[in-house]
């Protein structure tokens, strides 16, 4: 089996707007959809992923639950600041199973990706896995 989780490639979640110590933000990039990060109330919610080195990204895949609207921003700096917006997407509501979405980033180069969840289908949302395609 090929282990291609972002964390195994040296990526880190450097910011997350919510914290439940049993469901930490590292769960987003461990490649496992059984583990998750959960928001703990109110919107917007966000998290930022830092890559070990600048990366060309053709698409990201997001496995989540109850996310309604997601905005993605990026930068190419060493710091998690001064982001430019890349794209946004409305997710469909699912019940009983995860939302699974692929979002095209058109080969943008980035060192950080910022995910902003502006609204949800419920008070709480969860993100189970984020992966990138080069």
């Amino acid at each position: 089996m090929i282990d291609s989780s972002l964390s195994s490639l040296g990526a880190k979640v450097v910011v997350a707007a919510s914290s439940d110590e049993n469901h930490p933000p590292e769960n987003i990039i461990d490649g496992n959809t059984k583990t998750f990060w959960m928001s703990t109330g109110m919107f917007p919610q966000e998290f930022i992923i830092r890559f070990a080195e600048p990366k060309k990204i053709s698409a990201v895949t997001v496995d989540s639950y109850n996310v309604k609207h997601l905005k993605i921003e990026k930068n190419t700096s060493q710091n998690a600041s001064q982001f430019e917006s890349v794209t946004e997407k409305e997710f469909e509501h699912t019940e009983g199973h995860l939302q699974s979405n692929a979002i095209s980033l058109n080969g943008s180069s980035a060192t950080h990706l910022r995910f902003i969840i502006t609204t949800g289908y419920d008070h709480f949302v969860s993100v189970h896995r984020v992966n990138v395609q080069n």
């Binding site: 009983g96 419920d122 709480f124």
Partner: peptide, 12 residues
């Protein structure tokens, strides 16, 4: 309650 629901979800 919601956390429990999420723990029992199946993949997408």
């Amino acid at each position: 309650e919601r956390r429990e629901t999420i723990q029992n979800l199946s993949p997408g």
